[in-house]
Design a protein around this nucleic acid. Sequence first.
DNA 1: GCGACAG
DNA 2: ATCTTGTCGC
Length: 238
Amino acid sequence: MFIDNSQSIVFDYQQSMKKLHSWNLSYSDARDLQESLASKVKFIPLKKQPKLIAGIDCAFSKDGKKIIAAVVVLKLPDFVPVETTSALRKVTFPYIPGLLSFREAPVCIAAVEKLKTKPDLFIIDGQGIAHPRRLGLAAHLGLFFDKPTIGCAKSRLTGTFEEPPVQKGTHNPLKDRGQVIGAVIRTRTNVKPVFVSVGNKCLLKDAIKITLSCAVKYRLPEPTRLAHQFVSKLKLKT
DNA sequence: GCGACAG
DNA sequence: ATCTTGTCGC
């Protein structure tokens, strides 16, 4: 932490951000890395009620050669945006189910490093531990940020579940290999549910509660929804 | 071998 | 993810 020219307090993410490994790995090494990193994910109760929640989402340039990440920080309980940042990188890894982190995490980290505010928690468009090797994008980023993260995906990657009742607020466990890896949550009545799982430093119970409290009017929780809106606009300038 | 498969 | 506007229904 330090004081910048305008005398405001700035948290130096370059220093607090964990740099656990490089990203240019073979598919095989990437999978091995996921298995070893998965054991580092922490399942602990949130220390305090989050007041600043950030949403992260990615998009691609029109020619598909660059990837863009956007971060939107919202202040609760009014969900007022207090800061937005973004980053642009060349695409260096293909989309392979289960290896999304190696495609999207680097640019997400670059965007988060630009933040001057310090979010209490991140909601990320993708899976947390609801992943074949228990290390989806939100869990992987959670280890780098060393902060509470929640994965909120629009569809299932792995696991089985019973369709929750159509009413908003209902949810059922997402199970895989005999364990509960996440929850299938109805954030809007009669609308397809979202797939929520712990990313890092929180419990599924917290993730469910926070997701529902952030899903005020739309299917996606506000942080992720606004990040998606923002990154979509940036895409147009591409 | 066949089907599934975050974004 | 992306190609793409209006339209039907809660």
